[in-house]
Simulated assay, not measured.
Amino acid sequence: MVKIGKIELPAFPLLLAPMEDVSDPPFRAVCKDNGTDLMYTEFISSEGLIRDAIKSRQKLDIFEEERPVGIQIFGGDEEAMAMSAQIVSTVNPDLVDINFGCPVKKVVSKGAGAGVLKDIDLMVRLTEAVVRGTNLPVTVKTRLGWDHDSLNILEVAERLQDVGIQALSIHGRTRAQMYKGHADWTLIGKVKENPRIKIPIFGNGDIDSPEKAVEYKNRYGVDGLMIGRAAIGYPWIFREIKHFEKTGEYLAPPTIQERIDVIKKHLTQSMKWKGDTLGILEMRRHYANYLKGFPSVKEFRNILVNLKTYPEIEEVLDKMIVRYDGFIPDRIMASYPEGNEPSCSI
Rank of each mutant, 00 (worst) to 15 (best):
F238H: 03
L251E: 02
K274H: 12
I280V: 10
F238I: 01
F244L: 04
I241Y: 03
L291E: 09
Y220N: 07
R239E: 14
N204V: 01
E249P: 08
F238W: 06
Y287F: 14
T255Q: 10
Y220R: 10
E249M: 09
L278W: 04
E249G: 13
R229L: 04
L291N: 09
E282N: 07
T277G: 02
K198V: 00
F244S: 07
I237F: 00
I237K: 02
W273A: 11
K192I: 00
Y287T: 09
E258R: 06
A231Q: 05
I260Q: 08
D206G: 01
K265M: 06
E211H: 02
I201K: 00
N204D: 02
Q257H: 13
Q269H: 11
H266F: 08
I241F: 00
G228P: 05
P195Q: 08
V262G: 12
T247V: 05
M226L: 05
Y250A: 14
I232G: 06
V262R: 11
D208L: 00
I256K: 10
V297A: 15
T268C: 14
I241Q: 00
G233A: 00
Y250Q: 09
K292Y: 06
I263R: 08
F300W: 15
S296N: 11
P253H: 07
H266S: 11
I197R: 06
M271P: 11
D223Q: 01
L225M: 06
G233T: 00
L225P: 13
I201D: 04
N204I: 04
K212C: 02
S270D: 09
F202S: 03
G248P: 08
I237A: 01
E258T: 13
P200K: 00
L225T: 11
